[in-house]
Amino acid sequence: MQRKLDTYLKQVEQEIIANRRHLHQYPELSNQEVKTSHYIQQKLTDYGIPFKTGFAEHGVLGIIKGKDSDNIVALRADIDALPIQELNEDDFVSKHPNVMHACGHDAHTAMLLGAGYVLQQLKEEINGTVLLVFQPAEEASPKGGAQVMMEDGVFDTYKPDVIFGQHVWPYMPTGTVGVHDREVMGASDRFKIILEGRGGHASMPHQANDAVIAAGHLITALQTIVSRNLDPMESSVVTISMLDAGSVPNIIPREVTLQGSVRTYHSEIRERLKERFYQITNQIAEAFNTKAYIEYTDGYPATINTPQWAKLARSSAQKILGENATPAQKPSLAGEDFGRFLHKYPGAFIWLGTQLEDKEKQTPLHDANFKLNERALPQGTKLFVQFAIDALQKLNEE
């Protein structure tokens, strides 16, 4: 099996890179992935893989049926891009202004297509069914595309026993894989606060109810939620990232708008933090004779691995890349829509090391100069295949 796997992977290795570069040149934003979806469908057709469409508008489900078995493994890749103007100078940079695959979803899609090709060649030796889930709108938090795909029936006919996903990770050397037993990435909630006071002349603040002063105190007070209300060993973040107030220097504005995000791992902490958020905001507003209008939106849940499948993912990665390929990694509070799949189905989400050879030139995810080491693409493709083979074997043994 391993020899055949390597043979088929070698056949498609250059096409994986070519697919990634094509997708990188023609990125599409969340819920607009029309041509990306058509490209995926054409490749699945070329590979002889049956598929269904129409999930979350542009989502695609590839179906690879092996030998008789009721066991089903799903592999997922996200397909959307970000509203960023690319600043790289490669010959395959984005051709669409202000749209860029700065989060590596082009690589995820290319690797899953490559894995589909290999698994299709091996289907007579696979006991079970493998689903290829191409998900749109991962970047469209807080709604996203995972929940919509499930509501649209992506798993109505084929319900997975386990689901795997992976994300390129420029913070890890190529040839390594990050596997977490439980927490991988955080819940990502968002908020908008409008503090409404009474405007007035800058020289006569006693005649106004200054919403700017209230906002200043609120920004400071909200930071005490984490520092003074949660266990110091529990990781959470409250970030004010947008502030809009006033138009000219000599007028006290009538209102101030604050926006930001809240990141947590555990549901009970998530609810406690949210409750304290409302209390502090309303109390600060009242203290300064202003009114607070709060929009608090629950976003993606935390991405929490199933321990038994994380263990299998670690074993599969070590089988491919060696025993030292899975160094311990701290989880991240970045959000990931894959958490919604794991909320309903057991599985694991891993990080694929894609760091450039020259680490000084490596930029982070969501950066206009983001690049990845394409040497990692065949590795990630093989990981997808190995996850499917090993998981089906385990399910059949059980």
Rank of each mutant, 00 (worst) to 15 (best):
Q2E: 05
K4F: 10
K4Y: 15
K4R: 13
T7M: 08
T7H: 10
E15T: 07
I16K: 05
N19W: 13
H24T: 10
Y26P: 14
Y26V: 10
E33Q: 07
I40P: 00
I40N: 02
I40Q: 03
P50N: 09
F51M: 03
K52Q: 11
T53S: 11
F55S: 04
L61F: 09
L61K: 04
G62H: 09
I64G: 01
I64Y: 02
K65M: 09
Q85N: 06
F92Y: 15
V93Y: 03
P97W: 12
V99C: 15
G116D: 03
Q120V: 01
E124S: 13
I126Y: 03
V130D: 04
V133L: 15
F134G: 01
Q135P: 01
D152Y: 10
D152I: 07
T157F: 02
K159P: 02
D161Y: 00
V177S: 02
G178I: 01
V179F: 02
H180S: 01
E183V: 00
E183P: 00
F191R: 03
G197C: 08
A202N: 12
A202W: 07
H206T: 06
H206F: 15
A208T: 04
A211Y: 10
I219V: 15
S227N: 11
L230W: 08
T239Y: 06
I240N: 10
L243A: 06
A245C: 05
I251H: 11
P253W: 09
R254N: 04
T257H: 14
R263S: 02
E268P: 03
Y278V: 13
T281A: 15
I284K: 03
I284E: 03
E286W: 10
T290S: 07
K291V: 11
G299S: 11
A302F: 01
N305P: 04
P307N: 08
A310T: 05
A313I: 02
K319L: 14
G322I: 04
P327W: 09
S332H: 01
E336N: 11
F338A: 00
R340G: 00
K344A: 11
G353H: 01
K359C: 12
K361I: 05
T363F: 15
P364M: 15
D367S: 13
D367W: 04
N369S: 15
N369C: 10
E374N: 06
R375Y: 15
G380M: 08
L383D: 03
V385G: 04
F387Q: 10
E397C: 12
